[in-house]
Design a protein around this nucleic acid. Structure first.
Length: 539
DNA sequence: GTAGGGTTAG
């Protein structure tokens, strides 16, 4: 008797367990219980499960496949269940799946009909794909059913056409509105801004009969996107109403422009204006602290986070770890790292890079091994740190093993930086032929920096012929490349060809090429000092 | 009984 699965309404306890679940494993528990008790066949119960799996904070690209399995195991999905899975895929990396499920809905045996919700999600999927052909077909269906009367569907269509580059159609739909709708205007404005079409954005903005905070936020980020931070600031300063996004857009703009003092100043203004910083604010402010090397301000932000009970994971954990590492406080970085339960690959990358940059090469590699043991997939950034660690430590066999692991196990295509680490490592051991062979797999013009690296290796191994060959190759490629000139003159100097050295230097001056000095920062007693390579520090 | 449009992040 009890083996027969029923679709009876589920006990409130299981529903509230799902409601408060905050991890995928809790959902699995609920799911298993529901399968046993037969409540999974209750459409309301399974929709709660599906909604939870596809909403923050649980939803992620990984939980998508779980959500799909909930969907496929639902015998006769109702429209809510269809809509929820379509919504989940509409903004995912696989929006095509939303379309496939939509087609399944249209052909469903139990006659499920698409509604206004279905269409907002499916139009969004077309926008994500940038597939205007599909979008137009869906639009046709929308009109046929009469759902273009729905303001949500209509505005999503405006956005879809803009996303697909059909600005004319998008604009036509806005003009077709009987009543001004700021969201309709913003839908087009946002795409102009996103694409860096600032002139179009400005023109549209001036024409808009209605504007709100978001419209101005888009304009500020429009200036930021084309690199005009000062112009952005002017608009920002004139805003009468600012929300947290306004502050974040401006702060993010300064961070992108490496104007860290402005970030920190704006953060103080924000606190004075009594606007509550969110994760986005804090991530940027921490990155500014890291950028100027200000441990004291970074610590203040960390204390602020703890004081306000803000949960530290993923993005924020990464920013904290990175800040502590860049401010030279590796112990605090480790403390945050080890105290963070929800780490993503970037959090690991920040820690590995920090350890490596501070010379804790064994710890960096051990942390990498822990990551693998935890079953997390490393990405190309991870391997930059790992290979550079091997290169710094002169760990030849380890480096070769890692390079192989990256390509053959994790199927990551090495970038120039990865090749660079390998060339450096091989060069150090005088394995110049192996390095040259590795480089020859790349088109020369894509990798001048790598040839530079090999050039300095050939110099230190006194292979002057190879060095000269590479130096001329570099100059042939780019007569304005200062590194090529500097290296070439060094090679010539080491060979005692002083006349040629003078000739190279003269040519550099005539081409207006100067060698850019390196620059470093250090904080002493709360004051950040910046100095150029070759300069002394005066305390 | 549940839901939807335009927005900032390492």
């Amino acid at each position: 008797m009890s083996m027969v699965a029923t679709a009876t309404s589920p006990p409130p306890s299981i529903l509230s367990f799902i409601e408060i679940a905050n991890s995928i494993s809790q959902l699995h528990q609920a799911h298993a219980f529901m399968l046993k008790s037969g409540h999974f066949r209750n459409p309301f119960a399974s929709s709660r499960l599906l909604t939870k799996a596809t909403s923050p904070p649980i939803s992620s690209p990984d939980t998508l496949s779980y959500a799909l399995s909930i969907f496929t195991h639902t015998e006769e999905p109702n429209s809510y269940i269809y809509n929820t899975i379509i919504r989940a895929y509409s903004t995912s990396p696989f929006p095509q799946l939303a379309l496939i499920i939509f087609l399944k809905l249209l052909n469903s045996v139990n006659k499920v009909f698409p509604d206004k919700y279905t269409f907002t999600f499916i139009v969004k999927a077309c926008a994500t794909m940038g597939n205007v052909k599909q979008g137009e077909q869906v639009h046709g269906l929308v009109t046929k059913i009469g759902l273009d009367e729905d303001v949500y569907v209509y505005n999503t269509l405006i956005h879809m056409y803009a996303k697909c580059g059909r600005f004319d159609v998008s604009r036509g739909m806005i003009d077709g509105l009987v009543e001004d709708d700021v969201i309709a205007w913003n839908a087009l404005l946002s795409v102009y801004v996103e694409r860096g079409l600032f002139e179009f954005a400005r023109e549209l903005f001036d024409e808009m009969p209605v504007r709100n905070v978001e419209s101005l936020n888009f304009m500020v980020s429009g200036y930021v996107n084309v690199g005009l931070v000062d112009e952005a600031r002017k608009v920002f300063d004139e805003m009468l109403v600012k929300d947290v996004v306004s502050w974040n857009v401006m702060i993010t703009g300064y961070t992108k422009a490496d104007k860290f003092d402005e970030v920190l100043g704006l953060f103080e203004d924000m606190l004075r204006a009594k606007v509550k910083p969110d994760n986005c604010t804090l991530v940027n402010v921490l990155s500014a602290c890291a950028g100027v090397g200000s441990l004291s301000q970074g610590k203040w932000v960390h204390a602020f986070i703890e004081r306000n009970g803000i949960e530290v994971h993923d993005f924020l954990a990464t920013a904290l770890v990175d800040m502590y590492c860049k401010c030279g406080c590796i112990e605090k970085a480790l403390e945050v790292f080890n105290g963070t339960l929800r780490k993503d690959i970037s959090t690991w990358n920040a820690m590995i890079a920090g350890l490596s940059n501070h010379g804790y090469l064994d710890d960096a590699l051990n942390t990498f091994n822990e990551l693998i043991a935890d079953g997390i997939k490393p990405n190309e950034v991870t391997f930059v740190s790992v290979l550079s660690t091997c290169s710094q430590g002169g760990l030849l066999s380890e480096g070769r093993r890692m390079f192989d692991l990256m390509i053959n196990e994790y199927r990551i295509q090495p970038t120039l930086v990865h090749y660079g680490c390998m060339v450096d490592l091989l060069g150090r051991f005088g394995l110049l032929e192996e390095a040259e062979e590795l480089l020859s797999k790349l088109p020369v013009k894509e990798a001048p920096a790598l040839w530079e690296s090999l050039l300095s290796a050939s110099r230190s191994h006194n292979d002057v012929e190879l060095a000269e060959r590479i130096a001329s190759k570099l100059l042939e490629l780019d007569p304005h490349d200062s590194a090529g000139y500097v290296q070439l003159s060094n090679v010539l100097a080491s060979m005692g060809r002083w006349g040629d050295v003078r000739e190279v230097r003269r040519k550099m001056r005539s081409e207006g090429i100067t060698k850019e000095p390196g620059c470093s920062m250090i904080e002493v007693d709360g004051v950040v000092h910046e100095f150029l390579a070759g300069e002394g520090i005066i305390l």
